[in-house]
Design a binder for these strands. Structure first.
Length: 214
DNA sequence: CGCCAGGGCATCA
DNA sequence: TGATGCCATGGC
């Protein structure tokens, strides 16, 4: 039942928006940096900060870990919460510099997720974004947009419940997970206001289906 | 000027 | 488990 719904939403979004090439980055570590910086911030700000870090030759775990935190603060200031983010970035960089990113990313998916969650500044969404977009392992990312859209359609749940719902309704496929999450974000950004859903044709479509079915 | 952005954490009930 | 306040800059 709900498994079909998950697939149908994907097909609808894909037809409406088309394929996206999301989260372009030169290295997996750059993706990790992006997951922290993008928290509660627009991606255009993150691009500036990433570029600034690269210009300062800090886009490597060892170099970022050894940098002055004040310098990192200035480079990521445009992303907001810059004092927290600078310290958290440095902590994570230190972790990867010590453990070796290849070693960490070759761990089993669930183990990797747990380790990422143990880092300060890494919650459910950021951990899953790292697992999926940096380590290329199948974990479906749930964000505020996903929660909002599903609630509009009539399905509520906490993070893990929604993640289980999506993963149960889809083949365990990394490119699919990546694109689906990207489609949800792109759709919601343009069509779903925080309060009103009047322009949300996706919601209308599935509400009609629901009415017709029962 | 007010609102919100691809969250997470400490604190409290 | 769930709700609340806080972190903070930038764009519209």
């Amino acid at each position: 039942m709900q498994n079909e719904l998950v697939s149908e939403i994907y097909e609808t979004l894909l037809g409406k928006i088309g394929h996206l090439h999301w989260w372009p980055a030169d290295t997996p570590f750059e993706v990790v940096v992006g997951t922290i910086l993008t928290q509660q911030t627009k991606w255009t700000n993150v691009e500036k900060a990433i570029e600034a870090l690269k210009m300062s030759d800090l886009m490597e775990p060892e170099k970022l870990a050894d940098a002055d935190v004040e310098q990192i603060e200035e480079l990521v200031r445009c992303c907001g919460f810059y004092r927290q983010k600078a310290r958290r970035l440095q902590d994570i960089a230190g972790f990867f510099a010590t453990e070796g990113m290849d070693n960490i990313f070759s761990l089993p998916t669930d183990e990797l997720r747990k380790i990422m969650l143990s880092l300060k500044g890494v919650g459910n969404e950021t951990a899953d974004s790292i697992v999926l977009y940096a380590a290329d392992k199948p974990k479906f990312v749930i964000d505020a947009y996903t929660t909002r859209i599903m609630k509009c359609i009539g399905i509520e749940g906490n993070y893990m419940q929604l993640q289980s719902l999506f993963e149960a309704g889809l083949p365990s496929d990394v490119p699919l997970y990546k694109e689906y999450h990207a489609l949800i974000v792109e759709y919601a950004k343009n069509y779903c206001g925080k309060k009103q859903c009047e322009d949300c044709t996706l919601v209308h479509r599935f509400r009609e289906k629901e009415v017709n079915n029962g």
